[in-house]
Computed example of a mutant assay.
Amino acid sequence: MSDKQADIKPWGGRFSEPTDQFVERFTASVGFDQRLYHHDINGSLAHAQMLASVGVLTDDEYRQISEGLEAIRGEIERGEFNWSVSLEDVHMNIEARLTDRIGITGKKLHTGRSRNDQVATDIRLYLRDEIDSIAGELTRLQQGLCDLAEREADTIMPGFTHLQTAQPVTFGHHLLAWNAMLERDYERLMDCRKRVNRCPLGAAALAGTTYPINRELTAQLLGFDGPTENSLDSVSDRDFAIEFTACASIVMTHLSRFSEELVLWTSAQFNFINLPDRFCTGSSIMPQKKNPDVPE
């Protein structure tokens, strides 16, 4: 990498030599965090609008930045964007491209913020969308289970304990047990969403900024319930992400349980249900087999 390339790093002002190429590859996150581009651009648009509202940006500068960001979004979605490892992450790649497109005005976008609060915001926006998507899929599955349970309300089947026949139940009742588990999964995700949905922008690197920013406006523009309360906590903690993975692991445990019951019920020993052929596979040596590979 040339010295000129080193100069484009926003933190490179005090450094006298470029970053070693091995170090660049080792520390770069752009290979996986580029998936955050949509949320990064949305966060930047809100930040720019807030800066314009408090007089840090002129109306023309805000227009240039917002139009430039939307153009970059288009480049990414069309597969025309050149992701650079030397620019480390999604944030610097987009910001550098913005400066390429609109000149020095592009650098003003970073006024009053750090990559620290920018990253924290992007992750929260990303997780919020993922939670909403998963919650939607859970609701769709629950609706299917309830519809089937209603149709099978009078279908008698054995209930089991220790895999031994215990008491008679109905197939509909069993399906509603699955629905009850998914309902708790949904509730956990919605509760987690409350802690995800706080805006860290304005915390900057760790102690805020002297610029006259409006954190409440930024939070409102991004659909957050409000700004986070402590700047140090805002940029340093990811407990909301750990909480999400805990909720997701419980969802997956329930889905695994449902799947294992389907595997048992399709076996010759149980023969309770028959999965459609399009969801099964066969054996190359035993043509009589119909394997429930999807639930497996």
Rank of each mutant, 00 (worst) to 15 (best):
L138E: 01
Q21D: 08
W11F: 14
S259T: 04
G144Q: 12
E75V: 03
A153I: 08
D132A: 11
D20Q: 10
D191I: 13
Q288A: 09
G55Q: 09
I123Y: 09
A149C: 00
R195H: 12
M50K: 10
R14Y: 06
R63L: 13
G68W: 10
I123W: 01
R215N: 00
A153T: 08
A52H: 10
Y186G: 08
Q288L: 07
I156C: 06
L98H: 07
R101S: 12
V294A: 09
G31N: 05
S283W: 01
P168A: 01
T170E: 00
F81S: 05
I134L: 14
T155V: 14
H38I: 11
D3E: 10
E152C: 14
D7Q: 15
L175W: 04
R25Y: 11
P227F: 09
L163G: 07
D277T: 06
G103E: 03
T139F: 10
S256F: 10
A203P: 13
E67M: 13
N230R: 06
T19C: 14
E77A: 06
Y126G: 04
E67P: 15
R101E: 06
L45S: 04
Q164S: 00
I65G: 01
Q220E: 14
K289S: 02
I102V: 15
F244N: 04
R215V: 06
I242L: 13
D33T: 01
F279L: 11
R128L: 05
N197P: 00
L206D: 02
I131D: 01
A120Y: 09
W265A: 00
